[in-house]
Amino acid sequence: MSIKLIRYSPWLVHFNTGACNGCDIEVLAALTPHYDPERFGIRLAPSIRHGDILIVTGAITKKAAIRLRRLYEQMPSPKFVVAVGACAYDGGVFKDSYSLRRGAREVVPVDIYIPGCPPRPEAILHGIVKLLQKIEKLSEVGSR
């Protein structure tokens, strides 16, 4: 039942794990009227305990990885993770750096990757909508 609610009114939590801010401002832009995320029911959650979808940006630095894990565990189930940008996928241009983990999937289970450096706001919304469709299929099978 709760999955159906997420399908129609997903609340996002955004976490930056060491990004250049490029993806962050595109995520910010995706929440403005020009792209109108509210037609999908998408809005920013007031706190992590109200979040349904965790948006991860940034090349996952090792210290941020600990916080990311903690944040994920604080979110109530059902919860989903979206990794935005090339850095969240595997480190992007910073791939060889010693201060990074190899992508968000080492830390949290990722449901959707949105490639790009940075991805356009339309791509970010498209990715989230794809996630919502995936959730709809899940709710037909039964809750997680």
């Binding site: 060491g18 630095t61 910073f94 750096s97 010693y98 990074l100």
Partner: peptide, 20 residues
């Protein structure tokens, strides 16, 4: 917000540095 960028510059060719 540390990504070890100055070292990355030294590890890569100076053309890649444009993109870093």
């Amino acid at each position: 917000n540390h990504r070890g960028v100055e070292k990355l510059f030294e590890m890569n060719s100076f053309y890649k540095g444009v993109f870093i």
